[in-house]
Simulated scan of single mutants.
Amino acid sequence: MEARDPELRRELDATLQARGELGPEYEPALIDSFLEKVEQRLSGTQDQRTRRHLAEQQLAAARSAARPAKPTGAGGFGERFGFGVVSLVLAIPLSAIGVANAGIEGLVVAWLGIFGVNAVHAARAWPWARGRPRNVSDWEG
């Protein structure tokens, strides 16, 4: 409802004019009648806002349901490539620490750890690891 509703303004003018014609003894009835009209207008406006809000929520829910869900597990090529690059960059200091502390055995342990972490990450990207059939490609959904 706008701050200056012309219909309510006409109702108020009519109520004030009727008060002038009928006298002060009818004033409580006229005020009650005008307030009922204001309440009806407010109720109608609130109902309209509520319906609009519900329609917007339903539209948003329908739009989100129409979007395909992203598969869980490892991401696309970019995530896997980034993970591989980071693991190779971190392999240099890990190798140096392993060799400095335990010799060749430390180097082997460090690289086995790097290999294990990368193998687990790569296994998450396999289709059968996500519960999908093996013959479904990533292009098909």
Rank of each mutant, 00 (worst) to 15 (best):
V99N: 02
P133K: 02
P93F: 00
P93N: 07
A60S: 14
W139Q: 15
L112W: 05
R49M: 15
D138R: 02
W139F: 14
A3N: 14
A14E: 13
P6M: 08
A96T: 04
A14C: 07
A69K: 10
P93A: 05
A74R: 01
L59C: 05
A65Q: 12
L22C: 06
R67K: 15
G131T: 12
R4F: 14
G98A: 05
R124K: 11
A123I: 02
S137V: 01
Q57A: 13
H53G: 10
F34S: 00
A119S: 07
A14N: 14
S137T: 09
L16V: 14
A119L: 14
I31F: 02
N101R: 11
V99G: 04
A65P: 04
L94D: 02
R63Y: 13
D5Y: 09
A96H: 02
G44M: 03
L94K: 02
R9A: 12
R51E: 11
Q17R: 15
V109G: 03
R67V: 11
T72R: 07
G106N: 09
G23N: 09
G113F: 00
A102Q: 05
L22W: 06
W126M: 12
A66T: 04
V99T: 09
R51P: 01
R51Y: 03
R80D: 01
M1H: 08
E39M: 14
G103F: 00
E79N: 09
W128V: 13
L107S: 05
L90G: 13
E25M: 13
I31N: 06
A18P: 00
H53P: 00
V120F: 09
L59I: 06
R4Q: 11
L30D: 02
V109Q: 03
W126D: 06
G116V: 03
G141P: 02
L35M: 12
E2M: 10
A102E: 06
L8T: 15
E25G: 11
G82D: 03
P93T: 02
T50N: 10
T15R: 03
T50K: 01
L90R: 05
G78W: 08
G116T: 12
N118D: 13
E56M: 15
P6A: 09
L112Q: 09
F83N: 02
S137R: 06
R130P: 03
H53Y: 14
A60C: 05
Q46N: 01
G82H: 02
D47H: 13
S137C: 04
A66R: 11
R130I: 02
L107D: 03
A122V: 05
P6E: 08
F81W: 11
A14V: 15
M1Y: 04
F77T: 15
F34L: 15
A14P: 06
G103K: 01
L12C: 08
S43M: 09
H121K: 06
P133I: 00
I31Q: 05
R80P: 02
V136I: 04
L112F: 06
E105N: 13
G73N: 07
V108Y: 07
H53F: 13
W126A: 07
S87R: 01
T50H: 03
E2G: 12
R9Y: 11
A123G: 08
E39W: 13
G23R: 08
